[in-house]
């Protein structure tokens, strides 16, 4: 009886997996076909042709875009870790009325959907000369992801780092900053991992900010480069499919290697967020 059930569940599971893999399968078959091949997208071509990939790489300037993506993501995530954990420390440790209000205000900012303030934000970035610069887009990313970062760090420090630890270090004569960096911060590794994964993923995949603030070809990120490439070559399906595949590859590789951190990190972020 139990064995029969297990077979049924397994068959259902395989069906679900097959259904979900279809889009990736279609993307693969499409990206290997040259532009004169109009055979069904369900079939792999009987030749092996990587020219779509090399053409997409050069024509969409994917090298530049990939470099920009790495720079923007690394700087943003580093800034989020430093600023977010430092801000969370007093919020978690000093239980004053002021800090209660500050904490609620920081977290409440999470509810402002970035796109709703597109017009004034874009105007502001133009006014401060930040258009097509990496620093401006980094500052915008950091500002919008700080609330979640602070939320995660504050909750973690409150619930898992005992106050006695700080106090013991204080008796030994360490300053508050020394205590934070030498005693508290090293214990924050699990939540730092979640912050890296959640914010890193969203910054890496971002389109809604990048498309406005990074319009110059040299400043493009992967998504912006792809969207321009797509509108330019939309008739050459194989070429744009190859571009899309290249564009998602870095994230897929990282995911497959760090899968368990992704699943733990994203659910911890959303459970608390």
């Amino acid at each position: 009886m139990d064995k029969q059930k297990k077979v049924v569940w397994t068959i259902l599971g395989i069906t679900v997996s097959l259904m979900h893999i279809i889009p990736f399968y279609i993307l693969m078959t499409t990206s290997f076909k040259n532009s004169s091949d109009f055979s069904s997208k369900w079939l792999f071509p009987d030749y092996l042709d990587f020219s779509n990939f090399s053409n997409a790489w050069t024509q969409a300037q994917m090298g530049t875009a990939l470099f920009n993506n790495v720079v923007i993501t690394v700087i943003s995530v580093t800034a989020l870790i430093v600023l977010g954990s430092l801000a969370a420390y007093p919020l978690a440790r000093v239980a004053s009325r002021l800090n209660k209000v500050m904490y609620i205000s920081f977290v409440a900012v999470m509810i402002v959907p970035p796109l709703t303030i597109l017009v004034p934000l874009y105007k502001f970035i133009v006014d401060i000369g930040g258009l097509n610069t990496i620093w401006a887009v980094v500052l915008v990313h950091v500002s919008f992801w700080l609330p979640l970062t602070i939320f995660l760090y504050t909750g973690f420090i409150r619930s898992t780092i005992p106050k006695e630890l700080d106090e013991a270090a204080m008796i030994d004569g360490a300053s508050r900053l020394q205590i934070f960096f030498r005693v508290v911060f090293p214990l924050l590794k699990p939540v730092t991992a979640s912050v890296i994964i959640i914010t890193g993923m969203f910054v890496w995949n971002d389109y809604q900010f990048s498309v406005f603030f990074l319009q110059d070809k040299d400043a493009h990120t992967i998504t912006v480069a792809l969207s321009q490439f797509f509108s330019q070559y939309s008739n050459d399906v194989g070429l744009v499919a190859a571009g899309s595949l290249l564009g998602m590859l870095p994230m897929v590789i990282v995911f497959l290697f760090l899968q368990k951190y992704f699943i733990a990190g994203l659910s911890s972020g959303s459970v608390k967020g």
Partner: peptide, 26 residues
Amino acid sequence: SMKFRAVTRTIVYLPVIISPLIMGYI
């Protein structure tokens, strides 16, 4: 209780990490 549980979970979860723009193109 089923076989291939981890694989199924990975496959269903995979799209989450891909840029929504690219997902739209696919």
